[in-house]
Design a protein around this nucleic acid. Structure first.
Lengths: 155, 155
DNA sequence: ATGATAGTTAAAGTCAACTTTAAATTGGAA
DNA sequence: TTCCAATTTAAAGTTGACTTTAACTATCAT
């Protein structure tokens, strides 16, 4: 079964022009063409696009995905390079997760503060708040994320 | 204690020109100036910059951070808007975490595959691999991330 | 066979978030 | 006081990842 660029884009959740852009950048070396030059995608291409999606989600630039493809095409001689790329990216994601967790802690802390403020109808109750008035679990977020004693007083 | 833009940039881990850019975009409304016009940062500004860092890490655009500051300056009337912003961002981060976890699963699976391939010195061993030969925990990653039966055969 | 719909390319445009440049000014050490 | 590194501004440049445009072509249902 073959799929048009429009159908593929719809199923993967991107703009058709994004797929053309990826193709131009060498990210879709295995997509076939009809006799008239129209791209025809297979389920296998969808899997490949899902991998591209994962790699992009990890922040890997398109140029490095391209490099991976070039290594793929060189066969067994580049196995280590490809393995190293994935290990490097794994470490990168783990660091991103930690950073995102810190950001989440900060935001969660702010949610707690603003719940207090909205409840009281005023910022006053949270300006220069006494740490003893903050529940243990929320206080941990504040410490962990380094976001307190704000310039705006919403500490 | 006051700090120069250079010292501040060094401590926060950004380029001094980034701080000037943030200032120009209205993200640093509380940074003081010397009589000669030179910016002077305080510990409080560092805390504020750390919050900006967290918000940026969650993908919040600079324009929306600016909006938050405008709301801050309007006082209690905008408490709900600010609370809602943080709750919306909290949900956004939780979704980002889930996506990043999916990407991590895919990358971890690829690490396992390439370890096998490097060990054998060839891609052959992992091309069209029998799912029964994949340990349960690794097979879960493959399923979870949707990245298998690749165009490159490194399924 | 024809016309609508969806595809093709190359090239230019957009956007966010910086980064660099140039020319002038500030501020602390000698 | 003089000097030099660091600062200032406005404006232009950069980067990555698309997105749009224009002009043309393919495919498919009637």
């Amino acid at each position: 079964m073959m799929y048009s660029i429009g159908e593929t884009a719809r199923r993967i959740g991107v703009n058709p022009s994004t797929l053309r852009y990826y193709d131009k950048e060498g990210l879709l070396p295995s997509v076939q063409r009809s006799s008239g030059g129209v791209r025809m995608f297979t389920e296998n291409d969808f899997t490949w696009l899902r991998l591209i999606g994962c790699l992009k989600a990890t922040g890997l630039p398109i140029k490095e995905i391209r490099q991976y493809i070039l290594w793929l095409q060189q066969g067994d001689a580049t196995l280590e390079k490809r393995r190293d790329m994935f290990y490097k990216q794994k470490a990168a994601v783990e660091e991103q997760m930690a950073e995102l967790q810190r950001a989440l802690d900060a935001v969660t802390y702010k949610c707690w503060l603003y719940d207090k403020a909205v409840e009281a109808g005023s910022e006053k109750v949270i300006r220069n708040i006494d740490p003893a008035d903050i529940p243990e679990d929320i206080r941990k977020l504040r410490t962990n994320s380094g976001v307190y004693q704000d310039v705006d007083g919403l500490s």
